[in-house]
Nucleic acid binder design. Structure first.
Lengths: 127, 127
DNA sequence: AAAACATTCAACCAAATGGTTGACTTTAAA
DNA sequence: TTTAAAGTCAACCATTTGGTTGAATGTTTT
């Protein structure tokens, strides 16, 4: 007979392992206030130049440039270079990966609660 | 007349600012593979002792103890001390705060797209 | 051709992170 | 009443992070 629970377990772990690095990078990247602010601004305004983004912050252009590179490395942001200006654009696709991990975690939690109530029910039957 | 957009803007920023520290801490806390693994295990198994958690990892008890403290500080985990054993339990409430930020970000994105299509529509009218 | 602009690169620095080991406290067991 | 167990605390260490400044690269503008 097919062991669905085993298959489910193996599959969930395959997803977990393959996405693990992405999840770590995305979460770490978004854990910084400045980078979250940059993302927000890019969502509001659409594609922006690096200099324009930097003008909003009490921080050097270089610092913002580095923040953008961090966001870029984990693909929360894309870059289109036209001449000397770089157009930075938000890309929220990576967020889904994290959201899915949250969902998975919550379902693992629920699964345990279900098993727990099952046990409690069968115990009350035995009383 | 009431400026709903302004009120919405102010409110969203109040939420954003007050939750900012929590979001940063939760995201940074969860950006570590070991800590995510601990959270997953705690969701699967329910409350666990520190030593039992540590036994799964190729890492000192102290390291795990520190990881748990990080999770505890941002309230992803709670602790109940009975005698000499500490029972650690997952608490996923904080995840909602992050999920809400994701939702907010996406709605900001959508809002811009809507404005953009509005502009495009009015321009085609003018042709 | 020279000057200004947009941006990255490189080197540096202080602080934070993730790990280690060894000593310490408190509680439970022999 | 020793001894063992469960954890934390403290000090240390290498690496990463988030910022700085100054120079370098390539692209417009004048």
């Amino acid at each position: 007979m097919v062991d669905f629970k085993l298959i489910q377990h193996i599959l969930s772990h395959m997803v977990e392992y393959s996405d693990d690095k992405i999840i770590s990078e995305v979460l770490k990247s978004m854990s910084d206030v400045t980078r979250r602010s940059l993302l927000t601004r890019l969502c509001q305004e659409g594609p922006c130049r690096v200099t324009d983004l930097a003008s909003y912050y009490d921080m050097s252009l270089n610092a913002i440039s580095k923040h953008i590179k961090v966001l870029e490395r984990c693909e929360l942001v894309t870059r289109k270079t036209i001449g000397r200006t770089h157009w930075i654009e938000a890309d929220l696709a990576r967020i889904h990966v994290v959201e899915n991990w949250f969902k998975e975690l919550k379902s693992i939690w629920e699964l345990r609660l279900e098993k727990l109530t099952d046990i409690l029910e069968s115990e009350t039957k035995n009383d």
